[in-house]
Amino acid sequence: MLSIKNLHALAGEKQVLHGLDLEVGAGEVHAIMGPNGSGKSTLAQVLAGREGYTVTGGSVTYKGKDLLSLSPEERAREGVFLAFQYPVEIPGVNNVYLLKAGLNAIRKHRGESEMDAFEFLTLVREKMKLMQMDESFLNRGVNEGFSGGEKKRNEILQMAVLEPSLALLDETDSGLDIDALRVVANGVNSLRSPDRAIVLVTHYQRLLDYIEPDHVHVLSGGKIIKSGDKSLALELEKRGYDWVKQEAAA
């Protein structure tokens, strides 16, 4: 589904990715771990198409298409979803407007008709229940005045409604207490399916207790320096990152 080859990228003026390779197949869950400053968030932003990040080399192929040539909205319509590390507060734009406009833009792109109001609300209510969110959130401004945990739940709610093929979660676990982490993990797990891939970018192993990855990668110095199965995450938790770096340098 996603094939990243020798990716080099700048965040602003600074070279952050130095030849990153990653293959993600449909139905798989990948965890990308790494120390601060290793390039985890840059990777997520580059894949979502954020301005200010410049690809200087390599390629990203998604479902056979050159992902890097698409605008952020085209990526979203093709089924790429980024759950933000810091979801943006947008007073004056309703949550329900965003969900509806996003969903209809994606459906239109697929050649499907717009959802009618009843169908849409039924869908949204069901997903809100899953995320244990009160319906009053719908008519509030996007993330406006939400607590950290509510913002992260709102990200997963959007993801659950938009049903992406490739979900990228950028530090979704950061700042969550254990109950909120369970709700978020539950939401993510409900989206696991044979035709969907999930990439979790995380600093801690904790999230992986709830969302079990098929593959774990260590990102350091702008490239993947080690890959393994979920046991790698446990080992990192115990021993830190230095041994992997030393092993890679050797």
Binding site: A48, S71, P72, E73, A76, F84, P87, A101, G102, A105
Partner: peptide
């Protein structure tokens, strides 16, 4: 960017 990343046109 946030809105566009959800599928809205610019």
């Amino acid at each position: 960017f946030y809105l566009r990343s959800r599928g809205l046109s610019e």
